[in-house]
């Protein structure tokens, strides 16, 4: 599925002294089967932007299009199923007595039969490496385990686009690595993933394209190399890119690697002459 935001504006608390223009004419598309990274400073509008993708927030003006069709004409439940949204700190919303029931909640509401719900619950917990937690209470899990369960709950709806808002914030490296592997696995299965993150190193590893936003405006969209090398001096580049840029003159022979492996190979070639 192709999801497009066209010239979207969003205003919080309009007409009050605390009015905030959080999005000011944002246009960006999520192409079928791609991983789109969204980066930008604190309060730049990332969470606001992604909540427009399933119309959890509605634009003050501008459009959201699902395969070219106005998203408002798509039935709400249908839209929420097709565009799955995992919030910042999603574990705060876990509520059921067992992990299994928590993950089953959304698919059951879709009206699926019991067998199908069970299959989905099992598959999504397994995809998150959390199959063994099914019978546990979500409240007695570690932070990383809770995060896995919360993501599984959205995955169980069978989304065509999975939107993750800071999914790895505060996570241990093992859980973080598993989540990044999951993102690439979903992509291989044709599911689009939107990844909002402050961790530019992880965006560099998995994103096909990057959208950089600043104070509610899209500052750059393009391949990771285009966006990160374009912004290397402005705090918006992963450590790999910063290292290559710091080579100065010598950078010319190295190209514009972004991922860890590519960067390592390029630096090795340079060092060996």
């Amino acid at each position: 599925m192709r999801l497009e935001l066209r010239d979207v504006f969003h205003v919080y608390a309009p007409g009050t002294p605390f009015e905030v223009e959080a999005l000011r004419g944002v246009s960006v598309a999520v192409e079928p089967g791609e991983v789109l990274g969204i980066v930008g400073g604190t309060g730049s509008g990332k969470s606001t932007l992604v909540q427009h993708m399933n119309l959890l927030l509605t634009p003050a003006s501008g459009e959201v299009l699902v395969d070219g069709v106005d998203a408002r004409t798509v039935e709400r439940g249908e839209l929420r199923r097709r565009v799955g949204l995992v919030f910042q700190f999603p574990e705060a919303a876990l509520f059921a007595p067992t992990v299994e029931e928590d993950v089953a909640f959304a698919p059951r509401r879709l009206g699926l039969d019991g067998g199908e719900v069970r299959t989905r619950v099992r598959d999504s917990l397994e995809a998150l490496g959390a199959g063994h937690l099914a019978g546990r209470s979500p409240f007695a899990l570690s932070g990383g385990e809770k995060r896995r369960v919360a993501v599984a709950g959205v995955l169980a709806m069978g989304p065509e686009v999975l939107v993750l808002d800071e999914p790895t914030a505060g996570l241990d490296p093992a859980t973080r690595g598993d989540l990044l592997a999951l993102i690439l696995g979903l992509k291989a299965a044709g599911i689009s993933v939107v990844l909002v993150s402050h961790d530019l190193d992880e965006v560099a590893e998995v994103a096909d394209r990057v959208c950089a936003i600043e104070r509610g405006v899209v500052r750059a969209v393009g391949t990771p190399a285009e966006v990160f090398y374009g912004a290397a001096e402005e705090d918006l580049a992963p450590a790999t890119v910063q290292t290559v840029v710091a080579l100065g003159e010598a950078q010319r022979g190295v190209g514009r690697p972004v991922r860890f492996r590519e960067t390592l190979a390029a630096l090795e070639a340079l060092a060996e002459g």
Partner: peptide
């Protein structure tokens, strides 16, 4: 990156220092 390049990870803490070490080796 430093470790994989056979350089000392404890001393090369910033992208700038790593870049300098790579250039020095080249």
């Amino acid at each position: 990156l430093a470790l994989e390049l056979g350089l000392s990870p404890a001393e090369l803490r910033t992208p700038e220092r790593l870049a300098r070490a790579v250039l020095a080796r080249a």
